[in-house]
């Protein structure tokens, strides 16, 4: 799967998790804070992303995550997405 497909999948995933935000407004540049995600929400989001995309986030690396693109880049660089669960 190419990067564009990963981006679309991750945005679709984020949209399913952020019920309060209009899904059509979510982009790779969307920041977690703007999506209404507090620190616990982000931890839950990353846990769910691990389950969905078959990756394992390293604690020291996710600390700097602040927008959707950080997840897209991590998945692109760390895991063959052919193993993604959806």
């Amino acid at each position: 799967m190419n990067t564009e497909n990963i981006e679309a999948k991750v945005i679709e995933f984020i949209a399913s998790k952020v019920e309060e935000v209009d899904a059509s407004t979510i982009t790779a540049e969307s920041e977690f804070e703007a999506l209404g995600l507090d620190s616990m929400d982000r931890v839950q989001l990353l846990f769910d992303a691990e389950e969905t995309f078959g990756v394992t986030f390293k604690d020291d690396e996710v600390k700097s995550f602040h927008c959707v693109k950080d997840i897209i880049d991590y998945i692109s660089n760390h895991q063959p997405v052919s193993s993604a669960k959806n």
Binding site: S16, K17, E19, D41, Q44, D48
Partner: peptide, 8 residues
């Protein structure tokens, strides 16, 4: 419950 509340 919302999806978020269900997760929690």
């Amino acid at each position: 419950l919302s999806n978020k509340q269900i997760e929690q």
